[in-house]
């Protein structure tokens, strides 16, 4: 445990030094604030408070940005050390590969949690200041923040998998971009195409909601925006959510980080430095 802590402490220092923490926080905060301000012009027409609209827009933002930030934090974790030659060195110390991974994950997750909480939290404060926030919408914001951290955790783990499989930092970067494109962008496009093609048939009714929940990025949409009727209305995710048992989105968000870390541990365990 002391080992994990020592590694996490060092990794967090690196995260701060190379300004990743500040960049990630600033990125999320500026987008979240912009979306909240943009929402201020439309929320009256929808009959819901400002923060409700803002959380709905921020969810879409989080689905794209949080995986990206997480992958950018983690893709270098193993490949970078291997390239510098320090991986072989660290592995000759009496510390397990699992502890090494756990230490990095702890630091990266803490960094991500700070970025998400500060970034989205600022939007909540702004909405409150502008007078458009209630207890329920603050709850929704809380769910978005928690869900985003879980989503980030999955993609941190995916980043370690890519990093362990890659022979160089450059190929790890390419792999991270590829995974982001597939899971975050193309996955939804393919589902959309299938739903249109199926035209309300068996796929749309029976399988689509499950396939949606199986992707952690879409699971965040399910978890975050379908918690209240207002939110569901604002995003049109209600239909898919209604076909799933309650908590399917949350379950997916909880299982993916575990599965990802287990896979990362397996792949990293086979890596020869």
């Amino acid at each position: 445990m002391a080992m994990i802590w020592a590694i996490a402490d060092t990794e967090f220092r690196i995260l701060r030094r190379n300004r990743w923490l500040i960049i990630a926080t600033a990125l999320l905060a500026s987008f979240a604030l912009a979306l909240t301000l943009a929402g201020a012009t439309t929320s009256g027409a929808l009959g819901v408070d400002l923060l409700t609209v803002s959380v709905a827009s921020m969810t879409t933002l989080a689905v794209y940005l949080v995986p990206l930030v997480a992958l950018l934090m983690s893709f270098e974790a193993i490949a970078g050390e291997a390239e510098r030659g320090s991986l072989a060195l660290v592995l000759t110390y009496p510390v397990s590969r699992g502890a090494l991974l756990a230490g990095k994950f702890t630091a990266h997750l803490a960094g991500l949690a700070i970025a998400v909480t500060v970034g989205f939290g600022l939007a909540g404060v702004l909405a409150f200041a502008l007078g458009g926030a209630g207890a329920e919408s603050f709850m929704a914001l809380g769910r978005l923040i928690a869900g985003s951290i879980l989503l980030g955790a999955s993609f941190l783990a995916f980043g370690y998998v890519i990093s362990s499989l890659s022979r160089s930092v450059a190929s790890a970067a390419g792999g991270a971009g590829f995974v982001w494109l597939i899971l975050v962008v193309l996955y939804d496009l393919v589902l959309l195409a299938l739903v249109v093609w199926d035209n309300g048939g068996v796929f749309s009714r029976e399988f689509f909601p499950w396939v949606l929940a199986a992707n952690p990025a879409d699971a965040l949409r399910l978890f975050s925006v379908t918690s209240s009727a207002d939110q569901a209305l604002a995003t049109g995710m209600g239909v898919a959510a209604a076909a799933l048992p309650k908590g399917a989105g949350l379950l997916s968000l909880l299982l993916w980080p575990l599965a990802g870390l287990a896979l990362a541990r397996f792949v990293f365990g086979r890596k020869i430095p």
Partner: peptide, 10 residues
């Protein structure tokens, strides 16, 4: 290790 480089930020 041969030509080891530690993390430049530390």
């Amino acid at each position: 290790p041969e030509a080891v480089a530690f993390h430049p930020a530390l």
